[in-house]
């Protein structure tokens, strides 16, 4: 039987595809690559690379300890490269207003009840439950994607992360 090798990308090694324009604007596709974004992002910066009205997908370079985050609604995190530990705390205060969109960072470690911890690696996805504080920790640079709403911490720099010319520009990256 034919044997197959599944191709994944990583910070160390990724290949980018691209948009080949026929009669179009390349910007319509907001084409980017999560490993390229996270190669140059600051740790735990939440770089928006998918946007649909109030909803975003954020690309996050995980490296060392993150701040503590809190969000009024559920979020989900998917690990695309490396690994990360997630600590969860049920906070006493402050609860966010129910309609607050996106995560906020907490100035101090949260006071509350430890809920447990999770260790995810490539391909694993975790729930970041509403109104619970969480913190990431990653020993080596890793890549996370967060499903959430656009909020105070969401960083948009589309012109920098997206393909700008219509010819195929197949890039390769990594160290």
């Amino acid at each position: 039987m034919e044997s197959y090798t599944t191709q994944f990308g990583s910070l160390k090694s990724y290949q980018k595809g691209g948009v080949q324009v026929i009669a179009d604007r390349v910007e319509n596709y907001a084409f980017s690559n999560v490993f390229e974004i996270c190669s140059s992002a600051r740790p735990y910066e939440r770089v928006v690379f998918g946007l649909n009205q109030i909803y975003v997908l954020e690309a996050v370079r995980a490296e060392g300890h993150s701040p503590w985050f809190l969000c009024a609604h559920d979020e989900f995190v998917l690990c695309m490269d490396g690994a990360a530990r997630i600590d969860l705390v049920e906070v006493d205060v402050p609860r966010l207003p129910e309609d607050k969109l996106g995560a906020v960072s907490l100035p101090n470690p949260p006071e509350g009840t430890p809920m447990g911890w999770i260790r995810i690696q490539r391909g694993h996805q975790a729930l970041l439950p509403s109104q619970c504080a969480y913190r990431f920790d990653s020993a080596t640079p890793s890549v996370l994607v967060i499903q959430t709403c656009k909020g105070d911490l969401s960083v948009e720099r589309w012109a920098e992360i997206c393909q700008r010319t219509g010819a195929a520009e197949e890039a390769e990256g990594g160290r």
């Binding site: 595809g17 596709y29 999560v34 195929a168």
Partner: peptide, 18 residues
């Protein structure tokens, strides 16, 4: 149905469909 673009996607690539 007139052709607009081709989009080649590899691992980690993100693209919107308008």
């Amino acid at each position: 149905a007139e052709p607009r673009s081709r989009v080649i996607m590899k691992p980690g690539d993100m693209a919107a469909m308008p």
